[in-house]
Design a protein around this nucleic acid. Structure first.
Lengths: 186, 186
DNA sequence: ACTTTTGTAGAGTAAATAGTCGATATTTAG
DNA sequence: CTAAATATCGACTATTTACTCTACAAAAGT
C-alpha cells in the first residue's frame, strides 16, 4: 500500500468513527504514518479527500456489482446475485458501508461527485427496465422501484450487520431475499 | 415561538444545509435573532443542541404516528395509515426528514439519545408481532422485518420528495403502498 | 551525469470558533 | 415591594486546525 492509500484508509476509519469535523487532518496523517505535508500533497483540501474517498469506493463497488450481475441467467437470478453481493460486500467492508450511510447525504460530498456516483449505478435501471418489460417486475415508476429496492437492501444489511450470524443461516437468508423479491416482483 | 424554539429551528436548517461543523454557533444565534450567550444558556454545548433537536423531533414524530396507527381497524389498515402519515410528515417537514437522514448515523448524536429515540418506536414492533401472530405478515425475524419496513418507507419518501406531484397521483400512491405491503405480507 | 519532476517531512501561521464572563434586564415568588 | 432566580446580551479568549512554505530526498527522463 502506498502512502496515498494509507491516508485514505486512515481517513475512512476516522471519518466514520469521529465524524468529518472531529477529525483533524493531522490525526489522519498521524494514523496513516505520514507527514502533514504529504497528505496535502495528494489531496488539495480536506474536502477533496473525502470526495475522493467517496468516489473511489463507489466506483469499486459498482464494478464488483456489474461483474456479479452479469453472471446471473434469469432476471430473478441476477437480482439474487446483486442482492447477495451487496450484503457480502457490506459485511466484509462495514466501515465503507457506514461511510456511505453517514456521508451520502452530507454536504461535504459535492453535487458533482454525488452525481457521478449515481451514474455508476445506471446499470441497475437497465436491469429493472428489462424486468418490467418482461413483466417480471411491478409496473411502478422506475425511480420508485429503484429507490425502494436500494433502500430495502440497506435495511437488510443493517439487520445482518447487527446479527452477523444470521446471514449464514440459510432459512433467514432466504426469508430476507423473499422480502426483497416480493416487494419488486409482479 | 420563544427563543429556545427559534434557536432549534435555526439550527435545524443550518445543520441540514451546511453540516454540523460548518455551522458556527454564532451563525445559529444570528439566524435565530438571539445572542451568543442566550444559545449557551439553553444548551450547554453545541452537541447538546443537536442531540436535543434529534430527541425532540423524534419524540414528536412518534406521538403523531402512534395516534395515527390507533385509528386503523385492520392490521393492513394500520400499516397503511402509518405508511401514509410518515410520507405526509416528511413531505411537510423535509428539513426534519433530511436531518434524520444525515444525522441518524452520525457520531454527534450520542448513544443514549439514539437508544431513547429507538424506544419510542417500540410500538411498531408490537404491531409487527400482532401481524405475524395473525399470520398476515411474513414469519421472518422481527428485527429484519422492522428494518426492511422502515427502510422501504425511507426509500419511498426519497422518491416522493424528488417527485412531489407523484404522491397526489392515486395510482402511483397505490403502487407505492403495494410494494411496501407485498414486501411484508405473508 | 545531470536536470527535472515528484514525494516527503514538519515547523509555522493566520483564521475561525466553542464556550466564558460579568453586566443588565426581566420574570417569579414570598 | 423586594429578593431571588432566570433570561439576555455581546465582548473576549484560549484553543484548535486547515493549509503553506521551505528544505531535502528519491525517481525518472535525457
Amino acid at each position: 500500500m502506498d502512502k496515498k492509500d494509507l491516508i485514505v484508509v486512515a481517513a475512512l476509519e476516522l471519518f466514520v468513527k469521529k465524524g468529518f469535523d472531529a477529525t483533524p487532518t493531522a490525526a489522519i496523517a498521524k494514523a496513516a504514518g505520514v507527514s502533514n505535508g504529504t497528505l496535502f500533497h495528494y489531496f488539495k483540501t480536506k474536502e477533496m479527500l473525502i470526495n475522493s474517498l467517496y468516489a473511489d469506493t463507489k466506483e469499486r463497488l459498482s464494478v464488483v456489482l456489474m461483474d456479479t450481475a452479469q453472471k446471473g441467467t434469469s432476471i430473478k437470478g441476477k437480482f439474487r446475485l446483486l442482492w447477495e453481493e451487496m450484503i457480502v460486500w457490506s459485511i466484509d467492508n462495514p466501515l465503507k458501508f457506514h461511510f456511505f450511510q453517514q456521508f451520502s447525504n452530507s454536504p461535504y460530498i459535492d453535487k458533482l461527485t454525488k452525481e457521478e456516483g449515481q451514474m455508476r449505478f445506471e446499470f441497475v435501471n437497465q436491469l429493472l427496465l428489462e424486468g418490467q418489460n418482461a413483466e417480471v417486475l411491478k409496473a411502478a415508476p422506475l425511480e420508485l422501484l429503484k429507490s425502494v429496492a436500494m433502500a430495502t437492501i440497506v435495511g437488510t444489511i443493517q439487520y445482518f450487520l447487527e446479527k452477523p450470524d444470521a446471514f449464514k443461516h440459510p432459512d433467514i437468508q432466504e426469508q430476507a431475499f423473499l422480502i426483497f423479491w416480493t416487494a419488486l416482483k409482479e
